[in-house]
Amino acid sequence: MSESLDLHLALAETELENPVLPYLRQDRIPHIWCPGCGIGTSVNCFCRALTDSGLDLDKVAIVSGIGCTGRTAGYLNLDSFHTTHGRAIPFATGLKLGNPDLNVVVYSGDGDLFAIGGNHFFHAARRNMDILVICVNNFTYGMTGGQVAPTTPVGPTQTTMPLGNFESPFNLPFIADACGATYVSRWTVYHVRQLAKAMKEALNKKGFRFIEVMSPCPTLYSRRNRLGDGVDQVKYYKENSVIKNGADTKDIGLGYQGEIVVGKFVDRERATWLESMNDHFSKVLGDQFKPYGGKPEGV
């Protein structure tokens, strides 16, 4: 063993814990994600964002759908709900309306949120449901073995597009913007500091907030398409990203290995669904209406 290795082992035993460990269900780590998968990096950033947000973590709940990213809920040491494929957003809607004191975060994959779950995304954004949606976009269906996703660019092969994908992908920030999200940003897992900062900022904002996180799936996307390992993808993110805060979301669709526009695109104020409901009923019903705060009676 090298001298430096000796030193590190000694330090590891005597010194601090990794600062993110308290945010994780340590009895469930190591996680299932492949070597070089970017999901873990995004979760790492999310843990830092939780620290920096100053939120009472007992009041933060995380909801995931099904997929590799969907496993995130199971690793975070929060009230955590691993729901069904595509339905994290409606579950989160129920949780948030059931107890408006909770800060509800949806953490899921691109297929989950925009294929099977697309309709829910549109409507939750339209209603300005007060939840934060973090989408790890790896351009594929990781969990099921690399099938084409609604985000797969035109060109690369996927198991169900064996000759290369010919379908046009979604531009996720554009959808979120068009549907009325109050906060929209896109970062890659190369942009760890910006991502952590965006997550923190979004955690402390109200309304339907959306963060797209571009993330490599070496196992089923990049290696299959001869784009190398996770680290090679992250290098590509590094070399091809341009930060354009405030960019018009309609101009920032992602092509295959082309330019990547990252940044914060939308940050606006809009009454949330619950605020609108309370305002409206107060106006119409006057004293007969007590604004809804959420706690079920007798609990």
């Binding site: 990794n18 600062p19 990096t41 790492n44 760890v192 500091r193």
Partner: peptide, 25 residues
């Protein structure tokens, strides 16, 4: 990873933020 050039380490923890496996900081 091993810190072969300890003199260059600033303790910035970027490695910690990048690590998908929470293995380094």
């Amino acid at each position: 990873p091993v810190l072969n050039r300890a003199e260059d380490c600033t303790g910035c923890d970027l490695c910690g933020l990048f690590c998908p496996d929470f293995a380094i900081f």
